[in-house]
Design a protein around this nucleic acid. Structure first.
Lengths: 206, 206
DNA sequence: TGACTCATACCGACCAGTCGGTATGCATCG
DNA sequence: CGATGCATACCGACTGGTCGGTATGAGTCA
């Protein structure tokens, strides 16, 4: 007797297989270097299926960015750092959580939309917009905690928004360093500096 | 009567024209999306000339990364921030100088090797190594000033090297934000946070 | 039956790279 | 001096293969 999950789960469509293959391959090789044929082979579907579900390679990239937002959004929403009563602890917990994800080869921990937007910002406004929405939307989930921590500790001279964006900048830059080095170590060290910055800014006495 | 500069200046070879075109085009479109034909057209040379000077497209990318190191190296070596007597002022002057370069469209101020390594780190070890050498070599020019500032102010708990690399991470991440936003503003704000970090770390009383 | 989900075969453009050939300049030698 | 020989710089047509995308039709299920 099949479980109810098995009953209600729809059969995995070519669409989600393609999205999964796209997220993995584009993270590893970039958008331009990833071909439609390669994606089809990786997903085990034909080219006809590809263009049945996506109007173009560009449309797939946009859909992949949206899928990425949903997937990572769920991951962060379920992460334990939200349970800290102190908003500063939630912010520092977020950074620590990001660091904990960094392990193994670069294509396993780097950011799809950060990689894509670097290549596609000039060639495809649609891809740029999707990547921008993903990054900015994620930063916004941090902003409330930062704002609460700022209010609680009387931090002035910065905005919660720019701090949230700076956090994303450090992470994206850390990924580039890790790719260049072929080693996650410099990324982790850079994230340590980010933690130290928040600590100095919010706990100046310690 | 021609100037002696005009006499001694060699005629601009196809090689340097190709390198210039490559640096500009790869910054704007990325490595994979840049075709050899396009580079030849941009440089005003033929495909025969391209493959006379470079064994492959990959070899051109490596040469472009080296050319980028030299060009930017000369730019930073000539920058005024080196004249500050206080090493911390030199470090803060470096960051300010970096910020001053950020203006106009993203392809005009972003980093060639940061862009390239993100795409090519998995596909081409030679390109990755050339980009790594460029980034790490540049970071090293900062390291001595950071170390001197640390010694002078008794800063402990961090290394000059990791601070220099963190600075590069912030800059690279800032470029990604600028590309995603289609606006340099978030990059400049992130660099402000970097300056604030150095200030908090090195001038804790103020 | 008709809408949906594909599979197969195919298209023209473009890709990196090759190849036979040419133009020029410089060193050598008679 | 001029002829020879050879290296460098360059040309552009061409190749095999890959690119994103399309046309058409078959299987499936409501």
């Amino acid at each position: 007797m099949p479980s109810s999950a098995a009953i209600t789960a729809p059969p995995e469509t070519a669409r989600v297989k393609l999205l999964r293959a796209a997220m993995a391959t584009i993270r590893a090789k970039g958008y331009s270097a990833t071909s439609v044929d390669e994606l089809c082979a990786g997903a085990g579907v034909t080219k006809g299926a590809f263009f049945h579900h996506f109007a173009s390679k560009e449309a797939l990239a946009v859909a992949a960015a949206e899928c990425w937002s949903q997937t990572t959004g769920a991951l962060f929403a379920a992460a334990p750092y939200h349970h800290h009563p102190d908003p500063l602890d939630r912010v520092l917990g977020y950074i620590e959580f990001r660091a904990s994800l960094i392990d193994g080869p670069a294509e396993a921990f780097t950011c799809l939309v950060g990689t894509m937007v670097q290549e596609a910002f000039g060639a495809s406004p649609a891809i740029r917009a999707a990547c921008r929405a993903s990054i900015m939307g994620h930063a916004q989930t941090l902003e409330a905690d930062i704002a609460a921590a700022m209010a609680e500790r009387g931090v002035l001279g910065v905005t919660a928004r720019s701090l949230a964006l700076h956090t994303q900048a450090v992470l994206q830059g850390a990924f580039i360093l890790a790719k260049a080095e072929g080693d996650p170590a410099p990324a982790l060290q850079s994230i340590e500096h980010l933690t130290r910055y928040f600590t100095l800014l919010f706990r100046p006495q310690s």
